[in-house]
Design a protein around this nucleic acid. Structure first.
Lengths: 348, 348
DNA sequence: TTGTACGCGTTATCAA
DNA sequence: TTGATAACGCGTACAA
């Protein structure tokens, strides 16, 4: 609870010298350095981050902008929160949680307090007014997710295209030629083209055309009931289906039982791969799910690192800092829900 | 980006008058008030929260202390994060996320920067050095969860005792007399007595004794495999079991299939109630789970409200402020996994 | 009701 | 290498 002034008096030096010692901003002679550190420990000096922020015009606080009232967020969002906060802490920053609606006004209001040096934006949509507002405000930020036109926007996102490739590689190597894709049904949602679903669908269409696979695409409502319904829709659209990619965690269990209800066994008759999920999540069903684990932890960590790097570089070097646009791969975790296609030997 | 000084100059008043208008700390004449507000809008004045914090010795920031590296946290923790941040925002506060280990040193280091006015502590254990440290530091805080000796500690926690009563009431009203309890296995964990599990077990023991039920208690490993194993252990220990309480979300699906593997149908032969879970989570299985939904959102909201109330009351009134110790009930959501006991009519 | 002036605890700019 | 001292932007006695 001691101030710099008190430490300076105790050490018999000027307040500026104490500041030099604390920040290492100038070199001080070993003797005075020792006197200052002694005084600091004797008085139990600790920095006052608020005073430092006022004087230095840097708060060393970054904000994580998340969509309030969003019910779809799950375990991977939580891991992003935690890893972002942890990495920020390691880098000497604090992370504040900012709930925001879809409107850019929320962003402007929050930023106007000048509490934060930079912002991370979560759940970025294809058209996102929050990103527009941040660009206009000139505040350093990193987008977690991509808009449709991200020319000069630093972002960290999941590589949905690559995830689809990995999943199809896996299934094709097991001999599957008839593969369905199950995506969340956004037709009743205000969202016009949800990025992850849109990118996954597009990547799937391109890849299956190139690979020459038989395919079908069905949408899926929430929870087990939605998954069960999707299973029926899928087998109706693609009766000889032997492989399924699904990107809707809460419906995957229902998909499994829905497939069973049509007389198809997993993985005996049909293999299932859960996209953008997690091993832990996949372990909750029987059989356990082959998953492409979303890099939530890495996304949080990298987004913070990218933002902090720009902040620590200073306003001068900010312009010439390279634009970090990172796509993180999912990790394929092979488990019980995928296996050789019917008629293909187990060692095939 | 305008300062108070600039607004004052524009309005032709003193800087103090502007401050009075901004904070409502003194009454100002309607005419000058108008001149000031006009100047503010013309210059686009916004408060500088850092300068305000330095002068007022209040940052209006609270910290949420969460256990770093904790993998067990799930959806309800995420909802706590989001609701706490949202409520704080509504009350004019900011929420920063502070990762901490088990050691109290982390807490002391974080607090020493004087960045926050108060702290929320998550996942409080029966013996928690973080709580001890906060008490010693004299910093206002609210515990989310309870220690074993919480005489003067303000807390918000789930009412595990009541949840057990609700679950047993539900099952008993359906005619069940032989009920098992499935809890997470902490024998291999460093945690000595995990609060929620310990309180649930104790409440269960007391309640079933009073009710005169036949019971068994089994522990449960992670994921579906753990639940399946628990099902076998349970039917071995209590062959005529017709009702199960389980508090381990990722194993509940496995419990269902494990029961099926022993020839017992849910809910035809055995009813299952998932404790401290969520309706959304329970909808992922078939049948959908009857759950006692954890009040994660309410806990985050109430903890913030309690803390902010104390902070806004000021240091003077803090001592005489009542000690808020709140136990929040779970909400019973009856779904597909519970029904009348065998031999009891559906209208029983 | 309004103005003056000091304090909050640092950082940063000059001198020395 | 060190020391004065002016910002930083706002809150608040105290005075007018």
């Amino acid at each position: 609870m001691a101030t710099m002034r008190e430490v300076a008096a105790r050490a018999g030096v000027s307040i500026a010298t104490v500041s030099f010692v604390v920040n290492g901003s100038r070199s001080v002679s070993p003797t005075t350095h020792q006197r200052v550190t002694d005084a600091m420990t004797e008085l139990g000096y600790t920095n006052n981050v608020v005073a430092r922020a006022l004087a230095s015009k840097r708060t060393r606080i970054v904000a994580l902008l998340f969509p309030a009232l969003e019910e779809r967020l799950g375990g991977i969002a939580l891991r992003m929160f935690m890893s972002a906060a942890t990495r920020a802490s390691e880098l000497g920053y604090h992370l504040v949680l900012w709930p925001s609606g879809e409107t850019d006004q929320d962003v402007r209001d929050l930023v106007s307090g000048r509490l934060v040096d930079g912002v991370l934006v979560m759940e970025v949509q294809l058209h996102d007014s929050r990103v527009d507002a941040l660009l206009e405000l000139g505040l350093p930020f990193v987008s977690m997710g991509r808009t449709s036109q991200n020319d000069r926007v630093p972002f960290v996102d999941m590589d949905f295209e690559e995830a689809v490739e990995q999943a199809l590689d896996h299934l094709e190597s097991l001999g599957h030629q008839s593969i369905g894709l199950v995506l969340e049904d956004f037709s009743a949602s205000p969202i016009v083209g949800y990025g992850p679903a849109a990118r996954t669908e597009e990547a799937f269409r391109r890849s299956v055309a190139r690979r020459g696979l038989r395919t079908a695409l069905v949408t899926c409502g929430p929870s087990a009931a939605g998954g069960r319904r999707a299973a029926h829709d899928l087998v109706a659209a693609l009766p000889d289906v032997t492989g399924v990619l699904i990107m809707k965690d809460d419906a995957t269990g229902g998909l499994l039982s829905g497939l069973a209800a049509t007389g198809r066994r997993v993985p005996g008759d049909v293999s299932v791969v859960s996209l953008a999920s997690s091993t832990a999540n996949g372990a909750a069903t029987e059989p356990t799910l082959t998953t492409l684990d979303a890099p939530g932890v890495e996304m949080g960590r990298l987004a913070v690192e990218s933002l902090v790097a720009r902040l620590d570089a200073g306003a001068g070097a900010a312009a010439e800092a390279e634009l970090t646009q990172v796509l993180l791969p999912c990790v394929l975790h092979v488990a019980g829900s995928s296996g050789p296609a019917r008629g293909v030997g187990a060692r095939g």
